[in-house]
Design a protein around this nucleic acid. Structure first.
Length: 602
RNA sequence: GCGGCCGUAGUCUAGCCUGGUCUAGGAUGGCGGCCUUCCGAGCCGCUGAACCCGGGUUCAAAUCCCGGCGGCCGCACCA
């Protein structure tokens, strides 16, 4: 850690952004990977989420809907999703040095060195153990004997119902809730595609050893969208919205090449449209979300050249992904970290849930040219049936009805002239055949899904790291974008005396009542207070000074430039709103409105 | 899980090697007051820790020894 990042982590805790949970029990129990958000942290996180909504949902609210589903879900959901199977790691421990390894990875690696190619997918612990013994695989670190293969599932497990054996799990991603409730939302949306379902919420992953503060948590928050579309129409009509965005991308072929040569992958700088044209992504939606994701991180203060999309190679991808990218952001403390993942989940999830639930989960598409299909229908000829089978005719008629439902059997009957079912021989003569021609104007299909998925806590950290600036000697300036800043205004009487304090308190109340996050402070010198609120990232400081009692004007100070404007006190609210909503500087607003601009030497 | 470092007020830290002078010192913070009219001024008073837990050695342990629990960093793990 550098001096700066060290100061930052101390700052985050002592100023009440975040702190490790269960602190008073920390010396009694290991419970890493959990963090509390303090007052400022809650507000910051809230603002970061709201900005995400403003970029990903509100402009597309005609087809992207936000929902909220439970954190705990029954086991079958995760059997369907594949998490029970794939979220389980097989682990072997070295009996000598105690190091733990992914058993499947280890076997594949070690055997590949010997020139043996094996696929461990689908093998259980016994099979892996056998491979280890047969090939005499040893601990790669110390050469010791390996112990038995164990399982480690990253899902948090619980019981649903007090006396029950009904197993439930905390969701490891919010996604499954959206897949499971797809039919309802699809219905609400008028059965139209594209359809986006968004969800913001908590998830849990029982990490083996969480480290690195907010970067790897056992419980964290996600913002996800499942964008459902017709795979035969993978066009994104909104691609133009992001046409000017520069997206830095390390595509799959470059990453594969880099891995082979053991170097860093080449990063291209392209627009989303170019990414589509070069076929670096399998559909336009992925390029679209890349564009939005870059805009989002950029508005949080991360420059475009400090981000890129890293293609995931097939062996690194999650079980559901046919194509995946990680959005990487540079952190001074942690290096490149993943803040979002973008995955093409195809129809994997809906198909699986359809299979496990027994519910059809599909959409329909209109055929451009209606298809004509021939439908052959069979009806029993009661007279003929009775002639042959007499008393048993009723039974046979039922059989014919069954045959009629099975196109294979119908075909057999018509082609061969008869079919044998059990003891009964049924001939062509016993049925009427009716050929119906039907026009089909639509067909069923399972929508495909593109999923952008953001880890909020990491984004909170990254945002703070980029905003955290040291000026002078150990003086902190938190340059948060005004719309992200937890506190928007500090109201500061120039000295702690009447009438300045009375006016200040009144202004404070007024702004607070109108919905702004604001603080009032009259303690210590004015310089101390400016610095105090610079440190908390408060973008505007309003000072009540000697002029205020005379002409009802106050000064508004810009956090980053320290330039002030003098404006009527009753305009403070509207000026601050402009700063937040229109992303305009105070000086800019002051000029436009013809206010006095004050630059003081410091 | 392994290895290294570490555990003293809300925070940062002195003391530990060379046991007693430590009813644990400082800074910062918090509270009250004075002062203070534009960029971390000063002053006064108050407020705070039985030194991670347990055991041992000793007349005497924050300090030495053993065990436990936790933290940080590195390794491994991170669908």
């Amino acid at each position: 850690m550098t001096k700066k990042t060290e100061l930052l982590s101390e700052f985050l805790i002592t100023r009440g952004f975040v702190w490790p949970s269960f602190e008073i029990y920390r010396s009694k129990v290991e419970a890493g990977g959990f963090y509390d958000y303090g007052p400022l942290g809650v507000e910051l996180k809230h603002n970061i989420i709201e900005k995400w909504r403003r970029i990903f949902i509100y402009p597309y609210q005609d087809f992207i809907y936000e929902i909220e589903t439970p954190i705990i879900m029954p086991e079958i959901v995760f059997q369907a999703s594949g998490h029970i199977e794939h979220f389980t790691d097989f682990i072997v421990e070295c009996t000598k040095c105690g190091r733990k390894f992914r058993a499947d990875h280890l076997v594949e690696e070690q055997l590949e060195k010997k020139g043996i190619k094996v696929r461990t997918e689908g093998l259980d612990e016994k099979a892996l153990e056998k491979l280890i013994q047969e090939h005499g695989i040893k601990c790669p670190a110390c050469g010791g004997e390996l112990g038995p293969v164990g399982r480690f599932n990253l899902l948090f497990r619980t019981i649903i119902g007090p006396y029950s054996t009904n197993v439930g799990y905390i969701r490891p991603e919010t996604a499954q809730g959206m897949f499971v409730s797809f039919p309802r939302v699809f219905e609400l949306a008028g059965r139209k595609l594209p359809l986006g379902i968004a969800q913001i919420g908590k998830v849990g992953r029982n990490e083996i050893s969480p480290r690195q503060g907010l970067i790897r948590l056992r419980e964290f928050s996600q913002m996800e969208i499942e964008l459902f579309f017709d795979p035969e129409n993978p066009k994104c009509p909104y691609l133009r919205d992001v046409e000017k965005v520069k997206v830095r991308i390390a595509p799959e072929d470059k990453v594969a090449e880099a891995v082979q040569q053991g170097k860093e992958p080449e990063v291209l700088e392209l627009t989303p449209i170019e990414i589509v044209e070069r076929r670096l992504v399998p559909n336009e939606w992925m390029a679209f979300f890349m564009g939005l994701a870059v805009i989002y991180m950029n508005e949080l203060g991360v420059p475009v050249d400090k981000q890129f999309f890293l293609a995931k190679l097939p062996e690194e991808r999650a079980h559901y992904a046919a194509c995946a990218f990680d959005q990487m952001v540079w952190s001074e403390r942690f290096g490149w970290i993943e803040v979002s993942g973008l995955a093409y989940r195809t129809d994997y999830d809906l198909s699986r849930h359809a299979k496990y639930s027994g519910r059809e989960l599909y959409a329909e598409r209109k055929l451009e040219t209606p298809k004509e299909v021939e439908e052959i229908r069979l009806y029993p000829n009661p007279q003929k049936v009775r002639e042959v089978y007499g008393q048993q005719a009723g039974q046979v008629m039922k059989l014919i009805a069954d045959i009629a439902k099975d196109s294979e059997k119908v075909k057999q009957l018509l082609d061969r002239g008869s079919i044998r079912i059990g003891d009964y021989e049924i001939t062509k003569e016993m049925v009427f055949v009716k050929v119906e021609k039907r026009k089909i104007t639509s067909e069923k299909f399972i929508p495909h899904v593109v999923e952008p998925s953001f880890g909020i806590d990491r984004i909170v950290y990254v945002t703070l790291e980029y905003a955290f600036t040291l000026v002078g000697e150990g003086k902190i300036l938190l340059r948060l974008p005004p719309d992200i800043a937890p506190i928007k205004v500090a109201v500061l009487p120039i000295v702690k005396k009447s009438p300045y304090t009375d006016i200040g308190r009144e202004l404070y109340r007024d702004l607070a009542r109108r919905g702004l996050r604001v603080v009032y402070d009259d303690d210590g010198s004015i310089g101390t207070r400016y610095s105090r609120y610079d440190e908390l990232g408060v973008p505007v400081a309003v000072t009540i000074d000697e002029r205020t009692p005379q002409d009802e004007t106050v000064t508004l100070r810009d956090r980053d430039t320290k330039i002030q404007i003098r404006a009527p006190m009753r305009e403070v609210y509207s000026i601050v709103r402009q700063v937040i909503e229109e992303k305009r500087s105070l000086v800019d607003i002051g000029r436009e409105r013809g206010y006095e601009i004050i630059v003081r030497g410091s």
